[in-house]
Design a protein around this nucleic acid. Structure first.
Lengths: 338, 338
DNA sequence: TTGTAGGCGTTATCAA
DNA sequence: TTGATAACGCCTACAA
């Protein structure tokens, strides 16, 4: 940081006030002067110091997102798409995106929130992978800081964000599997306290009910939303002998990828011997072998939309819709059709 | 931003100086006082305003990384691992990571650099996907701002960062394919100006030479490092009739995934009819069907190491190694063995 | 060991 | 239409 507004002003024999206003587009500056200033700023390579601006304006042009990663070195394409969406939309509004990772409800996570929110580093937060009881949402509400969430916790008094209608879309998926002649349909979820687990599991059960199929707790398992977790849990399900499932429905695509691998290693054919389906519709899902049936959510666009909503909140602009519901789209691919 | 150091000081009937120093761990503060202050700060929910601190200290605790994304809504697991590594290591040092995406050498990219670097928003940058002639590196050098890069441009006078020995590792891969009886080995790269393309392509050619195989320009194609690009280009290669390759070596795993799909759609079997190999060793590669042979780089750890180096640079600490070379590890999987 | 005071670079208020 | 000046919250010489 070497060149300041003072340098520009001195160079032009103007006051810093005029320079500041010329650059900020105030209309009480002579057009001629503005041209001069803009030109000089560009030539001199001046860009306003963000810290000073933030301090003075008492607001920041930064939003934050903390990836809820349980393990170090994790990797889930859901997050790259999500972050790309957040970043692109933020950039479009000259906002910046602060990113970090922390295990849910960990001390590290809390420290980050504290630093970012109470330190005024961010003007708003994006949250997802919501839990039924989620300290983050309570915290953000108490701090009265702008935030939007993907998925909704029942404790959220004033929910602003997007939720997917997992319950209904999951039922569509189950119906599809039933049409394909599958009856012993297994479900691999995540932590039961997760909103997405609750909803997708509910949809799964309702789907069975509609089809007149019995609910069998032995066909339900919980993993951790990772490929590895899906793999391990699916292996166990496949050992069930006569109780072996004819289909495995997973809480997300990563889990499904793991399950597919387990099926394959068991010497069975995905799509023929056992149907496998996921949820999210990440780009990978079209490239697996066989391609994966999934409930697709437009992750990238959801992220952009969330940022749009968040910025409106931050800028105190009216929000057309405070709550948006999306119906994931059933993409039927080979993994569920013999 | 509501509770400041002043509030804490007033609450305790101390001066702000004392509070500031107590919290920053200076040793000229009575232990008793420190306890009091720390306690009060916690209770009152005080966290220093980052903007004020940055302005005063004339340095920031933020580093930046701009994802070189060519298309909106892109998704490459390489980047999620990379970002997770950057974020984790930054967090470990109480630094924050600013992330955005921009097409290489675009106006948007330049605007971001300007805002971040000249605006003092970041104290250092991480750069990768380097080009032979790369404006970012020149810019960062001119601005005299700390930066590290993954891959090295020949124009980098003072390179600090990590480079993979693509040339040698690629030769290992070619040797492996030759042992497997493959002779018509194709190469799908990226833009020729990319360092990784230059190096991997060089390794490819040297590998052919060592094996006494002729170099055939018709077996070389350029895509864009995406799955879709790899898919399209591989389709063309497969149409070559009698010139059809027996193996396809790709610049990265994403390209290889696309190529695998093309092979599959052509009714051929990956690993038997045609061998396919990638580069990077992203987590996905173990889960494809068949699993993908690849040259693995520890992306997550590379990212962490880069941040370690960058922070040393920023803090003016001595760097044990300014330049680290990594030899990617050949992971032989089914995609190259019949 | 603690307190006083100046200034980091901006923007906003007020006066010219 | 432009300029002088105060303040944003913090850190750090320097003084007590």
């Amino acid at each position: 940081m070497t060149i300041t507004i003072r340098d520009v002003a001195k160079h032009l024999n103007l006051s810093i006030t005029t320079v500041s206003r010329a650059l900020d587009g105030y209309d009480d500056v002579a057009e001629e002067t503005r041209q001069l200033v803009t030109q000089a700023a560009l030539e001199m390579g001046y860009s306003p110091n963000r810290a000073a601006r933030q301090l003075r304006r008492q607001r920041t042009d930064t939003i934050g997102y903390i990836i809820p990663a349980n393990t170090a070195g994790f990797s889930d394409p859901f997050f790259s798409e999500f972050i790309a969406g957040l970043g692109d939309e933020a950039s479009a509004h000259n906002f910046d995106l602060l990113v970090s990772t922390a295990p849910p409800a960990s001390l590290a996570e809390m420290a980050l929130y504290r630093r970012w929110v109470q330190g005024g580093k961010v003007g708003g937060m994006v949250v997802n992978r919501i839990y039924e009881k989620d300290w983050r949402l309570e915290y953000l509400a108490v701090q009265k800081i702008a935030h939007v969430s993907l998925e909704r916790s029942s404790s959220q008094a004033d929910f602003v964000g997007i939720e997917a209608d997992s319950v209904n879309s999951m039922q569509d998926l189950i119906a599809h599997l039933v049409v394909q002649g599958r009856s012993k349909i297994a479900y691999i979820g995540g932590l039961p306290d997760l909103i997405i687990d609750r909803d997708r599991f509910t949809g799964y059960k309702l789907g069975l009910k509609s089809a007149g199929l019995p609910f069998n707790p032995h066909l339900v398992a919980h993993a951790d939303l990772t490929r590895e977790g899906g793999y391990q849990v699916a292996k166990l399900l496949l050992l069930a002998g006569s109780n072996q499932p004819g289909a495995i429905v997973c809480i997300n695509d990563q889990t499904a990828l793991g399950a597919m691998r387990a099926v394959h290693e068991a010497g069975l054919k995905v799509g023929q011997d056992i149907a496998v389906a996921g949820f999210d519709g990440i780009a990978d899902s079209a490239y697996t072998q066989p391609p994966l049936t999934t409930l697709q959510q437009p992750v990238y666009n959801i992220a952009r939309q969330l940022v749009t909503m968040l910025l409106a909140l931050i800028n105190g602009e009216p929000l057309l819709e405070r709550q948006i519901t999306i119906l994931p789209k059933l993409l039927i691919r080979e993994s569920t059709q013999g």
